[in-house]
Amino acid sequence: MSDDRRIHPSKLAGDRASLITFLDYQRATLAMKCRGLTGEQLKRKAVATSGLSLLGLVRHAAEVERSWFRVVLSGEHCTPLWPATDAGFGEFHVRDADVDEAFACWREACEGSRAAERRVESLDDTVDFRGEEISLRYVLTHMIEEYARHNGHADLLREAIDGEVGE
């Protein structure tokens, strides 16, 4: 993809800065995979055997951001933005979805996540979540993994939609 606006992580940063910038890089990668597409293209389930769409991935990323940073790390109660249905995760059902709303919710969730991360003193600080100790280090690492996995899906979806490939 020729329009790479991502900020590449430092090869010399300390642990916290490295994790944060790698997570932001993964967030920017998802945005890049969606850039330049119409609403209908973003909603397209481009792989016949899958229910995934780029817009579904954006909505899922918003839910995951809220879940890990607001619910787990900050102890907040959050009602899902797109409640589950009998067919599964609600965020993946995008036929009637509002594209602008989805991206706004995702950007807001990312900003909320950044704010929650800044409130935690150390990567090794933990919270008790349902009887399990979870560190900020784990949350950041898990989120990098979550985005990296779904960005792989986004690569395939984007290529099937318009042939665009790239990192």
Rank of each mutant, 00 (worst) to 15 (best):
D100Y: 04
H77K: 14
E111M: 15
H77L: 12
F92R: 12
T79R: 10
V99I: 08
A31E: 11
D98K: 11
G90V: 15
E117N: 04
R107W: 05
G75L: 14
D86A: 13
R137V: 07
K43G: 01
E91R: 03
A46Y: 04
A62Q: 02
A61K: 04
K45G: 05
N151G: 13
R107P: 02
R70W: 04
E108F: 04
Y147Q: 05
L140V: 14
K33W: 00
F103V: 12
D128P: 00
R119K: 15
G56Q: 06
H153L: 04
R114I: 05
A48N: 03
W82Q: 06
R119H: 10
T38D: 01
V94L: 03
L54D: 00
R59P: 09
E111Y: 08
C34G: 06
E65W: 01
S74R: 14
G36E: 05
E145K: 09
R137I: 09
L54P: 00
A48V: 08
G90L: 13
A154S: 14
A116N: 05
V58I: 13
A102N: 03
E63H: 08
A102I: 02
V120N: 02
V72C: 08
D98Q: 11
A62P: 03
G88R: 03
V94P: 00
T49S: 15
L54S: 00
V120P: 01
E65I: 02
A148C: 12
M143E: 06
E108D: 13
L140K: 04
L57A: 06
G75D: 13
E121D: 13
R137E: 14
S113V: 03
T49G: 13
G75A: 15
K43P: 07
V71K: 06
G90K: 14
G88I: 02
P80H: 11
E133A: 15
V99W: 00
R59N: 14
S113C: 10
Q41L: 05
L156H: 10
T79V: 12
E76R: 09
W82L: 11
S74W: 03
A46P: 06
V71I: 12
E117Y: 01
F92N: 04
V94W: 00
A61C: 14
T79D: 13
E111F: 09
L73D: 00
A84Y: 05
E65F: 00
A115H: 08
H153Y: 02
E101P: 07
Q41G: 03
K45V: 05
E132H: 06
H77C: 09
T79N: 08
M143I: 09
A46V: 08
R107A: 15
G152E: 10
A97Q: 02
R35A: 15
E117M: 07
K43V: 04
V58N: 07
G51E: 11
H77R: 12
T79K: 10
R107I: 08
R114H: 06
D124R: 12
E133S: 14
K45D: 03
A84V: 05
R59A: 15
R59V: 11
W82F: 12
E132T: 12
D155Y: 07
K45I: 03
A87G: 03
D124C: 09
R149M: 11
I144D: 03
P83C: 13
R70G: 15
W82M: 08
R118F: 06
N151S: 14
E146V: 12
I134L: 11
I144H: 03
A46L: 08
W82K: 08
E101Y: 09
P80K: 14
R70K: 12
